[in-house]
């Protein structure tokens, strides 16, 4: 069973628990920031804010149209890779990475 192996290595050390909490807090913070960007590029620039940025022309249409059909997908890609890279370094920093 996975969870027992996990806990036997962490048991008896308060430092790990505090670190565990800080690790999770850092993760949640990163997720919230990422999801705000996720929402701004798709629901924001792609749909709701499109009238506001319509003055910015992109090849025959405007910035909102570009975000809806290309930009949001490109930003999603960057977000996922950024999150993976950041989390993998957080894992090491807090000593919870896979051996």
């Amino acid at each position: 069973m996975v969870d027992h192996t996990q806990h036997s290595s962490a048991r008896g050390s308060t430092r790990v628990t505090t670190d565990g909490k800080a690790y999770w807090k850092a993760n949640v913070r990163l997720i919230i920031i990422s999801l705000i960007i996720w929402a701004i590029v798709s629901f924001g620039f792609g749909i709701l804010l499109r009238p506001l940025v319509s003055g910015i022309g992109v090849g025959g249409s405007d910035l909102g149209f570009w975000f809806a059909q290309q930009g949001s997908i490109l930003v999603f890609l960057v977000l996922i890779f950024f999150y993976a890279w950041r989390m993998n370094s957080l894992d090491r920093k807090f000593g919870v990475d896979e051996e």
Binding site: D3, H7, S9, N27, V96, E98
Partner: peptide
């Protein structure tokens, strides 16, 4: 405890 363990990567190999 199960939830806590799911949240950290360490130990995934044993699964």
């Amino acid at each position: 405890e199960l939830v806590e363990s799911v949240r950290v990567p360490r130990g995934a190999g044993t699964a």
